[in-house]
Amino acid sequence: MSTTLRSIKSLAPLLDRVLVQRIKAEAKTASGIFLPESSVKELSEAKVLAVGPGGLNKDGQRIAPSVAPGDKVLIPQYGGSPVKVGDQEYHLFRDHE
């Protein structure tokens, strides 16, 4: 399921959701060698763009999310909800993922 939005700023995660953007893999090594596109894979590293206020526990108290906007996180290869804004793709994950 993919949703198209006009601006990423119009998207605010709810509850324990986290909005991330995958970090692009470098096509050039530290020593200056350019890698072919076939050898550059998607990284499982992403940057947190927005975080919801947190989920609720059994007593109705809010549980603060474990990440904050600007953090770099490792994300699973599969899962999450893709969100497409223009030509950029973002993903929504639950905080525990």
Rank of each mutant, 00 (worst) to 15 (best):
T3W: 15
T4E: 15
R6G: 15
R6W: 03
S7D: 15
I8D: 02
K9S: 15
S10Q: 12
P13Q: 01
L14V: 08
L14G: 08
L14F: 11
L14T: 05
L14Y: 07
L15Y: 13
D16W: 04
D16M: 03
R17D: 14
R17S: 11
V18H: 04
V18I: 15
L19M: 04
Q21E: 15
R22V: 02
R22L: 10
I23L: 15
E26S: 14
E26C: 12
E26G: 07
A27K: 11
A27I: 04
A27Y: 11
K28D: 03
A30Y: 14
G32V: 12
I33T: 11
F34R: 05
L35W: 04
P36V: 06
P36L: 06
P36C: 00
E37P: 02
S38A: 10
S38W: 02
S39A: 11
V40T: 09
V40I: 15
V40Y: 00
K41V: 14
E42M: 10
L43Y: 04
S44K: 05
S44N: 14
E45S: 11
E45I: 13
K47I: 15
K47D: 07
L49D: 04
V51G: 03
P53R: 02
G54K: 05
G54F: 02
G54N: 05
G55I: 06
L56T: 02
L56N: 06
L56W: 11
L56V: 08
N57D: 15
K58R: 12
K58L: 13
K58E: 10
D59G: 06
G60C: 09
R62G: 02
R62Y: 00
I63G: 01
A64Q: 11
S66K: 13
V67G: 05
A68M: 05
A68H: 09
A68I: 10
G70T: 02
G70K: 06
G70L: 07
K72E: 12
L74M: 14
L74K: 12
I75D: 03
I75A: 08
P76F: 04
P76A: 03
P76E: 09
P76K: 07
Q77C: 07
Y78D: 12
G79W: 02
G80L: 05
S81I: 00
P82R: 00
K84M: 11
V85W: 04
G86I: 13
G86K: 12
Q88I: 06
Y90V: 00
Y90I: 02
Y90H: 05
H91E: 05
F93T: 02
F93S: 00
R94N: 10
D95S: 09
H96W: 10
H96D: 09
E97Y: 05
